[in-house]
Design a protein around this nucleic acid. Structure first.
Lengths: 117, 117, 117, 117
DNA sequence: GTGGTCTAGACCACA
DNA sequence: GTGGTCTAGACCACA
């Protein structure tokens, strides 16, 4: 599971995103245990600091909870939370930015729809 | 021409983007002189180094050229260069990322098209 | 590693050249970490910005890459890149200029060859 | 006679070089009048300041002399002077630099000689 | 610790 | 006036 990291986003953000993806695809399921910080650090070949930072973020957003001495677990409504957050971001931030770029470059909605299929 | 800067991108990057916008809208025309480093620095209220950094970026991308003691000038094919670069980025990077996000969140093309109008 | 700087070229250019030399002589090897901006700045007694400017140049020419929080690393094909670039410059720019100068001054190839030994 | 100027050398230096070339090729002959500052400025499409700077350089190096109200004239030994200066520069500065570059890049004298024919 | 951004200010050659 | 280089110093996120 070694990951490729892009230069433009911090690694810990990319790890958060990959956690989101695992949750949304059902690879990680609500209530279940997620890999420990060390396990994940070894798996993606990254410093444990970096994983910890990602997990702390997920914890404050109530996607995961830590159980003393046992590890981190997905919350019951993790999927809904992630879904809601990302949908909101998608419609409020991503989409308007894409629309603005399309306008500036003179790209029509039709052209985009065609390319997306 | 006072500019508002956001926190999420470095100022010099935002200046590059605003130069792109000026070129694409035709406010700056090929072959013509662009504001001097100092002029622009005063206009948008940032340090001259920050403007210079943006201009250096545009210069290595052959959007502008410096003429010693005279200032920076748009290259003849500045518009084409900017357009080509951004279209490429849009179709090769932005759009695939958006498509992946839509798939993950179960958002349909129809829903997006509707929202964009 | 204290460096002597000449007046006729900017310091950051001379640093780029010395990096090239280190790469070509094998002192710096592909994939390995190069001195941090601060280390090198102290070593050659110039401001960190000046080193950074040199490193940024090398980065845009894909000789080195930055790894966030870890430092700069030589790319795998750094040696080839440097060699190719400089050979090209030598044969396409330097040599024709020298030949033109020799012609203008009436200096023969034989004379030059003799002097070079 | 519009000239192409390169970015890496100041224009006034390039003008000096082109004067040298005219002298060495015999286009300008010892004792004869050279174009006035204005004439040359118009001819090569450059500010008169820039031509004046070049002429001042040539004057202090005794390549040309000004005759009050009449213009600038090549000195009697202009050709010898230019020749001597440039030969010296060639053998003491250019050639050693070329030799060093060749050594670094592993280019043999034979290869260079072959390419020069 | 690392790179990266930004400021304030000086000084230079060039046009 | 113009771009360009360099310094000193601060502050940031990231690893």
């Amino acid at each position: 599971m070694t990951m490729e990291f892009t230069q433009d986003k911090p690694i810990y953000r990319q790890i958060i995103d990959s956690c989101y993806a695992r949750i949304l695809t059902g690879e990680w399921r609500p209530g279940e245990r997620v890999p420990s910080v060390r396990e994940l650090a070894v798996a993606v070949a990254v410093n444990t600091h970096t994983i910890l930072k990602a997990y702390e973020y997920l914890q404050t957003h109530e996607i995961i909870v830590s159980r003393r001495g046992m590890g981190f677990y997905l919350t019951a409504d993790a999927v809904d939370k992630v879904n809601a957050t990302r949908r909101e971001e998608f419609f409020n931030i991503t989409l308007p930015a894409v629309a603005a770029e399309m306008k500036l470059l003179g790209i029509s909605v039709e052209e985009v729809v065609e390319r997306m299929r």
